[in-house]
Design a protein around this nucleic acid. Structure first.
Lengths: 211, 211
DNA sequence: TGTCCGATCTGGACAGTGCTTAGATATAAA
DNA sequence: TTTATATCTAAGCACTGTCCAGATCGGACA
């Protein structure tokens, strides 16, 4: 079993084609956008025949899920990086939200794949929610720690999803050109993001603690 | 010019193929989802050759824009229908938000096309924002009326986009199966939507009036 | 060492896609 | 009736996702 586990990790002709394909897909995504991400282009980028991916993924969707998984981990890392940057919950949640939106701005194609695959399955991806250190759990734990004991789980969950909705909504809207004037009015993109996130009351600790 | 305008409205062999194609596309969307929406399938549904659509739309994207436009108008109608249902701004904004999310739940494929085409253009679609009676303007006007004179435009715009982000975020998240337990805790889907929207402070009038 | 087996990859094919071009047909204008 | 224009079709191109038969390679076992 232990040798089998090793074989699972480093098993190939090619080296590790599965990983190479995911990397190639992300490279194409960042370079040419989602519309250029065909399975054949990924195989080409990895220097392999068009049929080769089918020995590692059931279909294109399964490859995209693997790509999305990498994206969710990177997003989680980005959000975790600002953890502990301030003791104040309000500004901490704002900074986490800014980190979230920043990621979506820096990797728009990857961000799109992350949600597209999730929507196709009607289910949030593993890398985001299932693991205890996923991005979603990070937000929930932040609320839970701030609330302390005695606050019902339902309220924590509500605060979490409300914050997530706001951040995701802002991530999708902030790219539209129509909001450029408003961005300038708030001193650039960062100021705009903080203004919207601050405007959203759910980042305030009292809402979690009181109600 | 006036006769030309008439010719623009009713000019065909087929009757009105342009409109027929848009209708066919929406029919396919509601029946089989976004992945089945190929230009050829639309032509088939409309009983016409695969090349025929190219005499009415530059490419597939332009057809999708027309489809999205219909979607935005329908969404705007749905949101306008709850207008005046209550004099209280907080509950009115909540009801508008509920109408928004309901639309996305009842027409998930169409809703997806609406934002996909917008993202591809990095620009909000005409049907949503440009016209004075578009869905986005409806929200802005509601805030403006509630705020009265003296409140800077920037604050109105900020409240509008914040509300929009929250509604869109919730529209996208509410479909995920992971939130089903939470929905039950709030007495079903409607209760869940109102709980999240109420939790979001930007629906409260004071934030527009005071700040 | 030689042989075999299974995992890994290729070549070739199929149906379906967006889109273009050349030509047919019907409608309206002359 | 002739002509011009708008509308549509037929055929084809390059591309896609996916499958299949076979080639090739690695490690296990003799």
């Amino acid at each position: 079993m232990s040798t089998a586990a090793v074989a699972d990790i480093r098993p190939y002709h090619h080296g590790d084609l599965r990983r190479a394909l995911v990397d190639a897909a992300i490279r194409i995504l960042e370079r040419e956008g989602p519309s250029a991400l065909s399975l054949r282009a990924v195989a080409r980028e990895a220097g392999v025949s068009p049929a080769a991916p089918y020995h590692h993924f059931k279909d294109k969707g399964e490859l995209l899920e693997a790509v999305a998984h990498v994206g969710w981990e990177a997003l989680g890392d980005g959000m975790a990086a600002v953890q502990g940057s301030t003791p104040d919950l309000t500004s901490l949640m704002t900074e986490i939200g800014v980190a979230y939106v920043r990621f979506s701005q820096e990797h728009p194609a990857l961000y799109r794949v992350m949600y597209d695959t999730a929507r196709d399955k009607d289910s949030l991806p593993e890398g985001m929610q299932d693991k205890e250190d996923g991005a979603y759990c990070l937000v929930r734990n932040t609320f839970r720690d701030a609330a302390g004991p005695g606050v019902p789980d339902v309220d924590i969950e509500l605060a979490t999803i409300a914050a997530w909705c706001a951040a995701h909504g802002l991530a999708e809207m902030s790219g539209f050109a129509q909001f450029n004037p408003l961005k300038e009015a708030f001193g650039g993109d960062a100021g705009f993001l903080r203004a919207v996130l601050s405007h959203l009351g759910m980042f305030q600790a009292k809402q979690v603690k009181q109600d």
